[in-house]
């Protein structure tokens, strides 16, 4: 018997490991319904984030050297175009300010801005998902800095994603590009409403209703604030092209993300979670409220 077991120990070990990984997947899927991250997530974030931060340190200067000194083709032209654009925008800004002053709405807008003002926590991106199927970032701030699951993550140019798992010192954020991500959005010009989601190819797709919706290439897409996950008015990107098929109820448009997801070094966590997220995750902590 022992001889026989010895002979089949390799297949036995293979089967045991296979079953263990299957069990882990099932458990992980069950715990994934409970936001805030599984025990494994917390453990892994705590172990991996400091290591990646240490390794990221020598990698960053090399990447910067490439970006700042080698990959500069077309920067002069871009700079000139941007300078012109700044002048145009400054002019436009002055005109709008003047108009608002005249109508006496500036104070009301300032008050509204105070109302919506949220603390931003700067965090460093220490790693990105290496899998071909998932798009997430590893951040170097966690629960100790009051980061909680469900908090939006932004960059200066626009919305990045949402915190999905936290540990005391690190957090993981799902990017907009992830195919599981969906953001309720509106077109700034026409107020056409729809959903922006990752298409899995590194692009964003804006799905909207056909009737009466006016969406054109170049339109800016922002968060609508509906659903309570993201605050209203965060820039998502600009419409690149519209796929219009009259036979379909829903139309879709390709959206060029405002954020360059491949070159994120520093992002900001909005330290205010919406009431919807509080209901989902529990108001005080990172775990769902277990009270009925």
């Amino acid at each position: 018997m022992i001889q026989f077991l010895r002979r089949i120990r390799l297949p036995l070990l293979f089967a045991a490991l296979l079953l263990t990984s299957l069990a882990l997947m099932l458990r992980s899927r069950a715990l994934a319904q409970e936001p805030g991250g599984t025990w494994a997530d917390v453990l892994l974030l705590e172990v991996v984030a400091p290591l990646e931060k240490a390794l990221h340190w020598p990698v960053t200067p090399i990447a910067r050297l490439w970006e700042r000194h080698i990959a500069l083709v077309g920067v002069r032209d871009e700079n000139e175009a941007l300078q012109t654009r700044i002048l145009e925008l400054e002019d436009e800004n002055l005109q709008i300010r003047e108009a608002l002053m005249t109508s006496g709405r500036l104070e009301r807008i300032a008050a509204m801005r105070d109302e919506f003002e949220v603390d931003l926590l700067p965090t460093e991106v220490v790693g990105q998902d290496v899998s071909l199927w998932f798009r997430s970032l590893l951040l170097d701030r966690g629960q100790r800095d009051t980061v909680k699951s469900g908090m939006p993550v932004v960059a200066p140019s626009g919305l990045v994603g949402l915190i999905t798992a936290t540990s005391p010192l690190a957090a993981r954020a799902m990017m907009l590009l992830d195919r599981r991500s969906a953001v309720n959005a509106i077109v700034q010009r026409s107020r056409a409403r729809g959903i922006v989601r990752g298409d899995g190819r590194g692009d964003l797709e804006f799905v909207f209703m056909v009737r009466g919706d006016d969406v054109r290439a170049g339109d800016v897409v922002i968060t609508s604030g509906f659903g309570g996950v993201y605050p209203k008015g965060l820039r998502i990107g600009a419409v690149r092209s519209v796929q219009a098929d009259r036979n379909e109820i829903l139309h879709s448009a390709k959206v060029e993300a405002a954020v360059d997801f491949g070159r994120l070094e520093q992002v900001f966590v909005l330290l205010q979670r919406s009431s919807t997220m509080d209901l989902l995750f529990g108001a005080d902590g990172d775990h769902p409220d277990e009270t009925p």
């Binding site: 490991l17 990984s21 882990l24 992980s28 899927r29 994934a32 892994l44 899998s131």
Partner: peptide, 10 residues
């Protein structure tokens, strides 16, 4: 280091 389910790569 991935957002995959624990055990998926394993």
């Amino acid at each position: 280091v991935s957002d995959a389910l624990v055990g998926q790569h394993a």
